[in-house]
């Protein structure tokens, strides 16, 4: 028994050590620009609560697209409404340049993806797992919700549950209709709010 524990702990140690060594090149500017983000999104972007998303370890391309879409652009000296809905994020992105946003995305995406430990509603998880629309989701996001082939597609496995639900509602209600990605998400328009809530809980449970 001890041997297997040793093997296991060694494996954990090696993985942790090697990933740390890889991470040694931190984008310190990105860390500085985003130092206060962790007060809402959790230390190094690992959120502990349910309505604000984890951003640490999220795919970089998705982070950049999301942040730039929430940033109000100025055209002919006039501030335009951001392409994507947010409650307060558009205020903060107004304060950052595109390069600074990319640096923040670089730093947060290089942190570990830490699945949320927010308590689950098992009933909803089961309903989500049984959903006829599950395959539609996993075909892009991967069966574990963490497709790493296409970094423009967000990690959703282990993401905070209420955030996922709110995001699905935003796609459904045309609040995130900025680009081609939103078109892909048009599939959610045919799905009831109740089923979306269950799918959100299921993907949050993939931890």
């Amino acid at each position: 028994m001890h041997k297997s524990i040793i093997k296991f702990t060694f494996a954990v140690l090696l993985i942790a050590t090697s990933s740390n060594v890889v991470m040694a090149q931190e984008n310190e500017d990105g860390r500085r620009y985003g130092n206060f983000c962790s007060s809402c999104h959790g230390t190094a972007g690992a959120a502990v609560s349910d309505a604000i998303p984890s951003i640490g370890g999220q795919h970089k391309d998705f982070l950049i697209t999301s942040m730039l879409e929430m940033k109000p652009q100025v055209v002919d000296g006039k501030e335009q409404a951001p392409k994507r809905y947010s409650t307060l994020m558009q205020i903060f992105f107004k304060g950052y340049s595109e390069d600074e946003i990319k640096a923040m995305a670089d730093w947060y995406s290089s942190r570990p993806w830490v699945p949320t430990n927010y308590p689950l509603n098992q009933d909803l998880v089961n309903k989500g797992k049984a959903s006829a629309n599950l395959d539609t989701c996993t075909s892009c996001h991967g069966t574990d919700g963490n497709n790493i082939e296409d970094t423009g597609i967000p990690r959703i496995g282990g993401q905070t549950p209420t955030y996922l639900y709110h995001a699905l509602l935003e796609y459904k209600n045309n609040k995130r209709n900025a680009d081609g990605r939103a078109l892909e998400m048009d599939v959610v328009k045919e799905i009831s709010d109740e089923e979306l809530r269950a799918l959100a809980e299921y993907f949050s449970s993939l931890r």
Binding site: H2, I5, I6, T9, F10, V12, L13, A16, T17, S19, N20, V21, M23, A24, E26, T43, A44, A46, G56, R111, P112
Partner: peptide, 24 residues
């Protein structure tokens, strides 16, 4: 050894969020 290795791995998972050289 098992105990200390496990603890090191645990502390790494915390410290790994930041300054990585030190953790290594």
């Amino acid at each position: 050894f098992v105990k200390t290795t496990a603890i090191s791995a645990a502390s790494l998972s915390i410290l790994g969020l930041y300054g990585c050289k030190k953790s290594a």
